[in-house]
Each structure stands twice: as C-alpha cells, then as structure tokens.
C-alpha cells in the first residue's frame, strides 16, 4: 500500500465518525501517516455525516480529496453523492439494508454487506459499523488487525470499555462474511 483514500458516509448515529477514527488510530499504531477529516456542524444532528480518512506510507498532502480508493456507504443519500466519487478500479462497500438503489458502476469493485443483520444476530445493532469495518479490512488490510483492536480502546470512551469484546466479535464477523461473499460466484 502507498496511500489509501477512504470516505465513510451515512447518517449521524451510524458510527461513521468512529469507524474513521478507528482506522486513523490503527494507522498511528502501525506508524503510518494518517488524517481524519469529519463533516461537522448541525448537519450531524440526525442528518448525514461523513469523514475522509487517509492512510499512507508517506506525508499526506491534502486531507480532503474528491476521488476515493474506497467508499463505505451506509445510507441512500450518501450513495447518490459518493458512488461517482470512487476512482476507477476502487472499491465500494455498502450496507444492504439501507440502500434502495444499489450501485450501478461496473468499473469498480462493489461489496454488498449485511452488517446490520449480522450485528442484530449479535444482539447489538450498534456494532454494525464494526462488522462493516471488519469486512473492509479483510479486503484491504491497510492496517494490522491487532492495531484495530488496540484502537478500540482509544475510540471507545472508558465507560464503554466493557463493550470491547462485542466490538471485536463484530469485526471478526465482518471478516468472516466477506470471505464467504468473495467465494460466491458472481
């Protein structure tokens, strides 16, 4: 990997920003260069939220870009905005339960993930973002998995540290389902 430019987008409350922070923290632990740029302001209240995360082996110039190697999309408005922003040959991961209009592009790799369903099976809807992150990391191991686990401790406030095991489970689940998905004939 040289540089990976990622956009993560969805509704506020879907864990979009913390997913991005996990990646950034892990990159820091792996001694890579990283930046995390959130959308901020009132649009976060119930509205859409997104963050751009860049992980690189070398100095990062712009922390904001308009074309991405990977888009992780958690709601329909974000799909409309960011499907076209994936670089040719790039990847798009999306949550299947919230997308009405699936992506149509043929020049990118598309991964339909049932993160919410898997999270519900774990009895914790809130970890859907971790399922998604696990899936992404299986396809693009831009940071070490151990670093992601260490990053959990940084991103989760201390009072939520008892939730670390369930988050770990969700990450592993994500890795697992994508492996099966990749085996499926297309």
């Amino acid at each position: 990997m040289k540089t990976e430019e990622i956009i993560i987008a969805g509704f506020g409350g879907q864990g979009v920003l913390s997913m991005g922070q996990m990646l950034a923290y892990s990159a820091l632990i792996d001694n890579k260069e990283t930046s995390w740029m959130p959308s901020y302001g009132p649009e976060m209240r119930g509205g859409t939220a997104n963050c751009v995360v860049i992980v690189s082996d070398s100095r990062i110039s712009s922390p904001l870009v308009s074309k991405y190697d990977t888009a992780i999309i958690l709601n329909q408005p974000s799909m409309e905005k960011f499907e076209k922003a994936v670089k040719p040959g790039g990847s798009l991961f999306y949550e299947e339960s919230t997308i009405i209009q699936p992506p149509m592009r043929t020049d990118i790799n598309i991964y339909r993930i049932s993160a919410l369903r898997e999270a519900e099976r774990l009895n914790k809807k809130q970890v859907a973002n971790m399922v998604m992150l696990g899936a992404f990391l299986e396809v693009k191991p831009i940071v070490q998995f151990e670093s992601i686990l260490a990053a959990l401790k940084k991103v989760l406030p201390e009072r939520h540290h008892h939730l670390i095991p369930i988050n770990e489970q969700a990450l592993l689940k994500g890795k697992e389902i994508i492996s099966e998905y990749l085996k499926e004939p297309v």
């Binding site: 990283t34 740029m37 922390p63």
Partner: peptide
Amino acid sequence: DGALGQMMEK
C-alpha cells in the same frame, strides 16, 4: 480554519 480545528492527525 474550521477544518484544521476539527480534523485529526498525528
């Protein structure tokens, strides 16, 4: 500017 204030870096 606001973006520099809100963004995270190493």
